[in-house]
Amino acid sequence: MVKSMAKKPDLFPGTLDMLILKTLTRSPLHGYGIALSIKRLSDDVLTVEEGSLYPALQRLLLQGWVKAEWKMTETNRRARFYTLTAAGRKQLGIEMSQFEQMIAAIGRVMSDAQEA
C-alpha cells in the first residue's frame, strides 16, 4: 500500500465505488475488466488495487447497487460479470453530484489561494 502510494496518486477516499459504478454504466464487466477499464480511461493514472477492488465489489453487492452473475467471456472462460442495478444507477447520480460539489469547492479554495 505504502509503496504504491509513493508511486502513483491515490484515489480520493470514497471515489472507488463511484468509479466502479460509472464503468458499469456502459456494459456488464468482470472484475479484471473493471480494473482495466478504469486504468485505460484514466490514461494509466488511476490503478485500482485488487486489494481494494474485490472488497468494494462485495460492498456494492451487499448494498444492492450491482448484481453479479457467472457468464462466459469472448475467450470462453467462466467469469463473474457485474451489472449495474437501478438502485446503483441512482446511487451513482448522488455520488457524482457530491463529487462535483467537492471538486468545485476544492477548486474555489485553490484558485483563491493562488490569488493571495
Partner: peptide, 9 residues
C-alpha cells in the same frame, strides 16, 4: 475463481 481469472488476465 474470480480472483484466479483476474490473475490470469
Amino acid at each position: 475463481e474470480e480472483m484466479a481469472f483476474h490473475r490470469e488476465q
